[in-house]
């Protein structure tokens, strides 16, 4: 790949006196900083869609444990009998895992690039762009990852759940957020808020990265990003809080 572009009817012979670039040229689209940003945007979008579905599913708990369990079961039996048990869910899980891994890979890679780009730090540095959310993306991402691991152990595999693995999803959920386990609800709440902050910048940022943003849309995009984040936060917090405070028994 070359960095010079076709010069059309150049009237001069072309040779390359260009100084050797400071760093090795990265390979291909995924090697470029923009390519990595696109990876973040696309995988982020996949995860946002997942979160929306996940949230809607969670809300089933308000229609009773059976409704919730049916939903959980349906996830596994969808497409049956055409495809074997758990086909769709497995595909979804694979897509999700790939998204998470690629999102993290791109984030780590960009973050390493950033630290190479500024080897000597400022003695004094003051942020001029207002936007608390933008500055905690990496920290937020790492926190969310830790939470997701805990979350899977708790409610998917039941390893740290009082009901264990051999129980219905609704049981695990209700017992997991029991008032006696208020600290679980607290961890969950903190993590969900973190997700919200992450998305407030992330959703807007994805549009910017994919080149769909412009100054006429900025306001609308920021409002949308904030709205989606708030809806998700509220939607995710409603069931555990309802359980902890005894609204759902």
């Amino acid at each position: 790949m070359t960095a010079t572009i076709e010069r059309g009817s150049a009237t001069a012979p072309v040779n390359s006196p260009k100084k050797a670039p400071a760093r090795k040229r990265p390979g291909g689209f995924l090697g470029s900083s923009n390519g990595k940003k696109v990876v973040m945007a696309v995988t982020g979008a996949v995860m946002v869609l997942f979160l929306v579905a996940h949230m809607l599913g969670n809300l089933k708990i308000f229609f009773g444990r059976d409704s919730f369990n049916e939903y959980a079961h349906a996830l596994r039996t969808l497409l049956e009998p055409i495809a074997p048990y758990r086909t769709l869910l497995t595909i979804l899980e694979i897509v999700l895992v790939v998204s998470v891994v690629m999102h993290m890979w791109a984030a780590i890679s960009l973050s390493r690039r950033a630290s190479h780009a500024r080897p000597v730090k400022y003695v004094a540095k003051k942020s001029q762009a207002n936007g608390y959310a933008t500055h905690i993306m990496r920290f937020g991402g790492a926190t969310i990852l830790l939470f997701v691991i805990w979350h899977l152990l708790d409610l998917t595999f039941g390893v740290v759940n009082p009901e264990g693995f051999n129980s219905t999803p609704a049981d695990r959920m209700v017992s997991g957020f029991d008032a006696s386990r208020w600290w679980v609800t607290l961890i969950y709440a903190v993590a969900v808020v973190m997700v919200g902050l992450h998305l407030r910048h992330g959703i807007w940022s994805a549009f910017q990265t994919l080149g769909w943003a412009n100054r006429n849309r900025y306001r609308a995009l920021r409002v949308t990003a904030a709205a989606v984040s708030v809806v998700l936060v509220v939607g995710f917090l409603a069931p555990p809080l309802a359980i902890t405070f005894g609204v759902i028994k």
């Binding site: 010079t4 010069r7 150049a10 001069a12 012979p13 072309v14 040779n15 390359s16 006196p17 260009k18």
Partner: peptide, 10 residues
């Protein structure tokens, strides 16, 4: 700059 890249100007 275009000519610098083309090597005609140093």
């Amino acid at each position: 700059e275009r000519q610098i890249a083309a090597g005609t100007v140093t």
